[in-house]
């Protein structure tokens, strides 16, 4: 199958300067399991654009590194 990579605006934004390398809190609580660590930087990011904008990730982040936006299509 021919493929293309598409840019999407994802709802979850991580402030890398605040994200702790040893922490996994947001990744553990997300009901959709869409957050992961970037193995190179140790920082969390939204890997899959499959978000319920429910906010556990933001609430459980110890440093306030996460901001959840309303997905663009609904904004």
């Amino acid at each position: 199958m021919a493929q293309t990579s598409q840019r999407v605006d994802v709802p979850v934004i991580v402030d890398e300067s605040k994200c702790l390398e040893k922490c996994n809190a947001c990744i553990e609580v997300c009901p959709l399991d869409v957050l992961v660590k970037n193995p190179e930087t140790g920082k969390a990011y939204m890997k899959y654009d499959e978000c319920w904008f429910c906010l556990p990730c933001e609430k459980e982040c110890p440093t306030g590194a996460i901001t959840v936006q309303i997905p663009f299509l609904l904004r």
């Binding site: 009901p31 429910c54 556990p56």
Partner: peptide
């Protein structure tokens, strides 16, 4: 399927 701490309809 998720993590019981924050799963389902009453996740929040």
């Amino acid at each position: 399927k998720a993590n019981i701490r924050r799963s389902g309809a009453i996740a929040m």
